[in-house]
Amino acid sequence: MLSVKDLCVSYGAINALKGISFEVNEGEIISLIGSNGAGKTTTLHAISNIIKKKSGTVTFNGTDITQMAPDAIVLQNLIQVPEGRRIFQNLSVKENLEMGAFTRNDKAQIKEDMEMVFELFPRLKERIRQISGTLSGGELQMLAMGRGLMARPKLLLLDEPSMGLAPILVDEIFSIITKINKTGTTILLVEQNAYKALSISNRAYILETGNITKSGNAADLISDPAVKSAYLGG
């Protein structure tokens, strides 16, 4: 579904990504794991073409999207839920969700999809008319994910969905991610909580200072002594 080959990104003299390659197959949950500054968010931004690539190619569903404009990539049903949520704080919950469907005109299906979002996130339905800037951190993350789902993604890029959340909410968010995947949405997950990410993923790639240093089945990585030592606190 997604193929990233020899991707390089630089910020001035700093080489943020040094020729990384990886693949995401349809139906999978794939995690990118690494410490702060490893290049995880840069990878997602480069896929979405929010930042300029130095070199490399990105192919999605057989289409070369390497130089495609970000808004055109959205039309390919490749959707990113950014780090920090970045919802429209002055709009209501309902209006934010409607913004997620701004590329669509199938009104009946949009209504059905909004109900699907409310099934996944009942708290959003309870707060449907509430101004989004007044929501809690967990509710904001739910809204950001719900807004992404309103675009009917084939591939959903999730950037640090558990950041800043209480442990009980982290468990809830990861449970919802697995439910989203089971509805047929493929997921590429960037996450510092390596244990939680690996526990729900099919496969994972470990990024260190712009290089992929290890990859494999999530179940194997979660028991790998080097991964345990570096990322799982063991």
Rank of each mutant, 00 (worst) to 15 (best):
N15L: 09
I168S: 12
V9E: 00
K111M: 12
F118K: 05
A38H: 10
S31K: 08
A46C: 06
M114Q: 12
A16C: 06
I131Q: 12
L157C: 06
E160S: 02
R129T: 15
I110E: 10
A108E: 13
E115H: 13
Q109F: 13
S201L: 04
I177P: 01
I87C: 11
N77P: 06
T41S: 12
G234F: 15
L155F: 09
K40L: 01
M142C: 09
G216Y: 04
D220E: 14
V93E: 08
I168G: 05
A194L: 09
L44S: 03
E119L: 13
R123E: 15
R86K: 12
S48L: 11
S92Q: 07
L75P: 07
L44G: 05
L156K: 05
M145T: 14
K154W: 04
Q67M: 12
A46L: 04
P122W: 05
L44V: 04
G137V: 06
I131T: 15
N49P: 06
L7S: 01
N49D: 03
I47M: 02
V74I: 14
G19H: 01
L156S: 07
I51W: 00
S136R: 10
A13H: 15
S132N: 04
A69M: 13
I20P: 01
Q141E: 10
T41E: 00
P70C: 05
G27K: 11
Y205W: 06
A151W: 06
S48P: 07
K53H: 05
M1G: 11
K52S: 13
L7T: 00
G34M: 00
T185Q: 01
S21K: 01
G12W: 06
S31L: 05
H45G: 03
M1I: 14
I222T: 02
E172V: 07
G233K: 07
S229M: 13
G137M: 01
A197M: 00
I180E: 03
N36C: 01
S215N: 10
H45W: 07
I176T: 14
A72K: 14
V81P: 01
D113A: 11
P225W: 07
G133I: 10
F121E: 07
N61K: 15
T213S: 04
Q89P: 09
L2G: 04
I187K: 05
T213G: 06
K54V: 06
R129M: 15
D159A: 02
S201M: 08
D71G: 10
K107G: 00
G39Y: 00
D71R: 11
S136N: 04
S215E: 15
L143E: 07
K196W: 09
S92G: 05
S229K: 15
A194Y: 06
F102G: 11
K111R: 13
L155H: 12
P167A: 08
T57N: 12
R123F: 11
Q80T: 12
I206H: 03
E115I: 02
V74K: 09
L165N: 09
S92K: 13
S31H: 03
T186S: 11
I29L: 11
N181I: 10
K18Y: 04
D224E: 07
L143I: 03
R152P: 06
I14F: 15
K125M: 14
L157E: 04
E26Y: 12
I29C: 08
Q141Y: 05
K52V: 05
P122R: 05
G146A: 14
